[in-house]
């Protein structure tokens, strides 16, 4: 029986003792599947069917929703703690929103796994997320142009650029520098996957935010709320 390498992106209760899972698999892409009876007391599998746990699943069924017949988990889950846990959920949401069902992307799967490993090891979170975002866009065919201008001319490290989505960096002259522009040096660092210093990391974050917003549409990513502390809303104060 064939086993598929999978991660769980999302799980919800289904009927009394089953789970409805959204699976991201190396060979099959993203698809929904049901794990029958795993929530009963006799089943030991519930603890294994968690996000960030590398699983090998056996599947049956030809319809839209598959059935999980075998669950193997030889490898350990990536233990994400603290803010890295939020980042993990952010990755899940990105994959849910950016990939189509039943559209396999083995490279994206590896990028995801690699990023989970970095998050679990306590790597710089910003760094891990940015390079996942860039890699994901590249794999999905929306790759960014980071090593030269939109016209093909080389970038100057100390000049400021505006990133025109689906075109590339366009130089900005004089006064028009604002929060949406970034330095050539940041673009070049991103193109070489180098570590980013503080200002560059902020510029990169704003760049990726605006690019992702373009592909995600108007609905914002809910997991971003986790990174913000809760404030009593204005209506409560008045």
């Amino acid at each position: 029986m064939q086993l598929y390498e999978c991660y769980i992106l999302h799980r919800r209760d289904y009927r009394n003792s089953s789970l409805l899972l959204e699976i991201f698999s190396k060979e099959l892409g993203r698809f929904p599947a049901i794990a029958k009876g795993v929530k009963s007391n006799r089943s030991k599998k519930q603890g294994e069917l968690q996000c960030f746990h590398p699983l090998q699943l056996g599947l049956a069924g030809r319809g839209e929703i598959r059935n999980i017949t075998t669950i193997d988990s030889e490898r350990r889950p990536y233990m994400l703690t603290g803010t890295a846990l939020y980042c993990g959920l952010y990755l899940s949401e990105l994959l849910m929103r950016m990939t189509a069902r039943n559209d396999p992307h083995p490279v994206l799967f590896e990028q995801y796994e690699q990023t989970l490993a970095e998050l679990a090891q306590g790597a710089l979170l910003d760094h891990a997320l940015r390079y996942f975002e860039i890699g994901m866009l590249e794999t999905l065919g929306y790759g960014l142009l980071l090593n030269c201008q939109a016209t093909g001319e080389p970038l100057q490290p100390d000049l400021h650029y505006h990133y025109k989505i689906e075109h590339g960096p366009v130089p900005v002259t004089g006064q028009r520098r604002d929060r949406s522009t970034l330095r050539g040096s940041t673009l070049l660092a991103l193109s070489r996957a180098e570590p980013l210093e503080r200002v560059a990391a902020q510029e990169a974050k704003r760049l990726m935010r605006s690019v992702l917003a373009h592909y995600l549409g108007t609905k914002p990513l809910k997991s971003r709320e986790l990174f913000r502390p809760i404030k009593p809303s204005l209506s409560d104060k008045i």
């Binding site: 959920l89 952010y90 899940s92 809910k222 997991s223 809760i230 809303s233």
Partner: peptide, 16 residues
């Protein structure tokens, strides 16, 4: 987040 449940939805402003 994937179910659209953020801090506000589970009353964390009240807890705060």
């Amino acid at each position: 987040p994937l179910d659209g449940i953020g801090p506000k939805e589970i009353g964390l402003d009240q807890l705060d």
